[in-house]
Nucleic acid binder design. Structure first.
Lengths: 138, 138
DNA sequence: GTAACTGCAAACGCTTTGCACTCCC
DNA sequence: GGGAGTGCAAAGCGTTTGCAGTTAC
C-alpha cells in the first residue's frame, strides 16, 4: 500500500495521521514474524524515545478496526499482530512462539470450497499449525 | 473415556484423583461450546461451594499436560478450553464468542495431505472460522 | 504417615483508562 | 483554534504463586 493510500484510509475514517501511527504500522509490515506489543515498543523506542505502550495499544486497535492487521491471541499471555490479511497458515513453534506464514494453493482452494458451502457468511479465519522449530529442538 | 481409564491416566502420570479434578474434567466434556475459566468456576460452585479459581487453573494446566484438552487463546482476554482433540474447525462468533465445532471430511483429507508434505513433524493445529451468529445479528 | 492437593490471598503482568499537554488539520 | 492524539501513571483484570491446612493412597 502506498503512503498516500494509507493516509487516505486514516482520514476517511476520521483518524489523524501521526508519526507514531505510521511508525507502528510500518514496523509491523516490515517484519515477517508477528511481533508482540512489547517487541514493537522496544523496537520503536530507539527512533521514538517518548513513545508509550498506551499509544501502541491504541494504535493497534485502530489498525485492527481498519482491517490492516489481525490479532492472534496465544496462551503465553501476549497477543501477536499479523499484517497478513490474506488466507494463510501460521506455522507456530510451541516452545519459542516463533511464527512463519505459509501459503498453500491447494489448501486455499479447499478452504474456499468449504466456505462456499456454509449457510452463513464468514468474516475471517485463523489457521495455526504447531510444531517445534529447529532452534528449540536442540 | 471410561472413569477407570481416566483414573489410570492420572495415576500413571503421578497425579492424584480428586473430586475437584473429576468435576472440572466432566464439566468441560459435558459442554459442546468451549467454556472459559470463569464459566467453569461459576458452574461448579453450585455442587462444590469451596472450589477455588486457583484449583481450576491448576487442574486445567494438568489436563492440558495430559493431552485431554486444548487451550484456545482469544483476544477478548480469556482463554477457552476445548476437549475436542480431534482435527476440527472452530466456528467462532466474533461478537459473543460462542464456539461450535465443525467437522468436514474433505477438509480433514486435505489437511492430512498438506501435513504429509511438510519437512517437519506437526504437533497439533487450530482452525478457526469467524462469523457473526444469528443472536448477535439481531 | 506423607507427599500431593486444595483454598485462600497476595503478587504478577499485560492491557485499559483518565487526564493534562501537544500536535494535526 | 479546536478537537483528536500522545504520554504518563493509575487502575483493572485474568492468571500465577506461596503457603498453611487437608486429603488421597
Amino acid at each position: 500500500m502506498k503512503d498516500q493510500e494509507l493516509f487516505n484510509l486514516f482520514r476517511e475514517n476520521g483518524f489523524k495521521v501521526t508519526t507514531q501511527r505510521l511508525a507502528i504500522y510500518k514496523y509491523i509490515i516490515s517484519r515477517d514474524d508477528h511481533p508482540t506489543t512489547e517487541q514493537i515498543y522496544q523496537a520503536l523506542k530507539k527512533d521514538h524515545p517518548t513513545i508509550s505502550l498506551g499509544t501502541i495499544y491504541k494504535t493497534l486497535h485502530l489498525l485492527k478496526q481498519l482491517g490492516l492487521i489481525q490479532e492472534l491471541g496465544f496462551n503465553e499471555g501476549s497477543i501477536r499482530y499479523d499484517p497478513n490479511m490474506e488466507l494463510h497458515i501460521n506455522i507456530v513453534c510451541t516452545k519459542c512462539g516463533h511464527i512463519d506464514d505459509y501459503e498453500s494453493k491447494s489448501f486455499n482452494k479447499n478452504w474456499k470450497e468449504l466456505i462456499s458451502n456454509l449457510n452463513f457468511e464468514p468474516k475471517g479465519q485463523r489457521i495455526d499449525l504447531y510444531y517445534e522449530c529447529e532452534k528449540c529442538k536442540k
